[in-house]
Design a protein around this nucleic acid. Structure first.
Lengths: 210, 210
DNA sequence: CATAAATTCCCCGTTTCAGGGGAGGAGGAG
DNA sequence: CTCCTCCTCCCCTGAAACGGGGAATTTATG
């Protein structure tokens, strides 16, 4: 097996140290460098390249999802292994869609970590158990969630702002009857019976960001 | 300065490795041991003790807040330094109330980390900039938040479940007029005009856990 | 014990929401 | 062109919520 050169993007010094320590014990993995934000990561890859990038999802200046897409556009050969603290299925799904080759959570063991890096380096996909589970959950959630139209989403967000149907109608320059219809559709599609339940459902399912 | 013996409680191997690596370079700090869950942490302290415990807030089997309280009850001499990934002001406040001597986020630099450990070891309190800011924010938030009575909270949660005033009245064995009154108080106290705004406000301010 | 706060309940009226139905026009997909 | 979805608007009725008041009883709290 050939030498795997990796680059770390994470804003937690202690995580960088930890990964570096794990890697040091592996003879066939080499740490080429690291960055603590998206900007300096992109700067590095102007004149350099590596085999694998270990990328945290939460960066101070940019989301890991955006950085992943940009990096993949410019350097399609680099395999990206996403690393995240919490198991939000939506993040796992997004990262894989943006071209990541793997996804692990920060509570993986050293053995799993090394396996993930070598797997991704050889072009294979790697999801640790929790990440795979989270992604399947997310896909299942997306499937059973009804599709809201553009107008319905607009109305939903204005409802969440505390506006009445009449106020929403004025805001969108339509009749109150129209908003009434949209509101009825929302309740029907999401299977709830009143405004409170509507709000709860939408917050729980990420239809409204607070 | 004397030798500081520390113990780490964190369920992320790479964070333990990282902190261990940082500590190794400090001659006057010694890593006595570590645990990856609350249970094995408590087991360790049956027959051992240390100067400082570095404790993650999110543990698989118990919340760091509970573990902090238990540990402080049994070993008041141990100084606890809380370590957390995200800056939830409510966590910072809770941990300090449960007897923690310090709180830092995982994105601290090595220098800040070492300073925090030595500070806490010598009995002083240590909050890194973000943690201090988050706690002040939280305190300020608590102060301006109106106090809800027990009954109002009950009604609030049942409203969030999507129940109507009549259904809530049946559930609590009171008249619908009563629930009407409580609901009016909620709207008045929280300064909102309808159910949607009520839900949004309560979710944003942690009055409702989803 | 006296006072304050919380809980309970009622009146009135108005506004908003919920649920049922129908219907015409715009625009995209096949 | 045709079908279908979306957006628009309307009718109706009943239920629920909002807003303003008042008042009795229990429960903390000083």
């Amino acid at each position: 097996m050939s030498l795997v050169r990796i680059f770390i993007v994470d804003d937690h010094p202690m995580v960088i140290e930890g990964m570096a320590a794990m890697i040091q014990r592996e003879p066939n993995i080499e740490l080429a460098g690291f960055a603590m934000n998206a900007a300096s990561c992109l700067a590095y890859f102007v004149n350099n390249t590596v085999d694998v990038v270990l990328m945290d999802i939460n960066l101070p200046d940019k989301s890991g999802i955006d950085l992943c897409r940009e990096l993949k556009e410019k350097h399609p050969a680099i395999n990206i292994l996403a690393i995240s603290s919490f198991n939000q299925g939506t993040y796992v799904k997004s990262m894989m869609e943006q071209g990541a080759s793997g996804y692990i959570f920060k509570n993986v063991t050293r053995e799993e970590f090394v396996e993930a890096v070598t797997s991704v380096a050889s072009g294979k996909e790697y999801l640790n158990f929790e990440a795979g589970f989270a992604m399947r959950e997310e896909k299942h959630r997306m499937e059973r969630l009804p599709v809201l139209t553009r107008r319905e989403k607009e109305v939903l967000h204005l409802i969440a702002e505390g506006l009445t149907n009449l106020q929403i109608a004025d805001r969108l320059f339509v009749s109150q009857s129209t908003i009434d219809s949209h509101r009825k559709s929302l309740l029907a599609k999401l299977g709830v019976k009143n405004t409170a339940a509507l709000m709860k459902f939408c917050v729980e399912n990420g239809l409204i960001k607070l």
